[in-house]
Design a protein around this nucleic acid. Structure first.
Lengths: 116, 116
DNA sequence: TAAAAATGTGCGCGAATCGAATACAATATC
DNA sequence: GATATTGTATTCGATTCGCGCACATTTTTA
């Protein structure tokens, strides 16, 4: 269930003890989670997600990728996510402007490459 | 911790019994989750998230809205999501450019309002 | 409107699980 | 080679789980 914990910890090159210390729990307790011997409380689980800067859904294996991929061009028509800048939601118009902005910029870079 | 369960169930106009039946557990068990009297196992929690077609993070209150909010300015330093345009990931530079772009545009709009 | 069914709430019990301490082998560090 | 660190496993008391059951309230049915 928590098979992702191992990779998250290894990616940061932390030992079980280091990780447990940061979470304020015993090494054996955290180790139990990784090995599948025990399940953490929801509070501990949330704390762990915070420590690894990820989601609970990823840790318990409900999402396959740690980094969720979000296609902005889809968001205009199907806003299943809300993008913010400085805490303020991005409007549809701002999104459209942005898409155009990036497309133009990417094309310019392409042309520059071809000229070299 | 699981304060969202009540609203998710009510939105669907389900009784405790109906909900518990769909989850294959006792009414009192599910009711215990809603009232905060008990915490479900991770397996049950995942099952509940499936039933309500939402995320565990939302149910346990780690995200405020069912529609997830993503602050782009945070993505630069902590890329827990990946934004795409035309299938191609947004680079850090593109994100920074975009943030500046939106900020300038928003400021211009503000000035225009003040002039009226 | 009275009877019956369904709803939400709370408690008690046995069983299961938790969190920490401890022990120990394997590996790393000096 | 001695020492410290790491990962794994086990045990123990305490906590919590999941369910059954009871009860008051509301809704539905006859």
């Amino acid at each position: 269930m928590l098979e992702h914990l191992f990779e998250l910890r290894k990616k940061r090159k932390w030992s079980l003890q280091e990780t447990a210390d940061q979470l304020g729990m015993a090494k054996s307790t955290y180790a139990g989670y990784e090995s599948g011997y025990r399940e953490p409380s929801l509070q501990s689980l949330s704390q762990i997600a915070d420590l690894f800067e990820t989601t609970v859904d990823f840790i318990i294996g409900r999402t396959f990728e740690e980094q969720e991929l979000i296609e902005i061009t889809n968001l205009v028509k199907n806003p299943d996510h809300r993008l913010l800048i400085d805490g303020k939601p991005l409007s549809k118009d701002e999104m459209i402007d942005f898409i155009a902005f990036v497309r133009v910029k990417r094309n310019l870079n392409k042309k520059e490459e071809n000229e070299c």
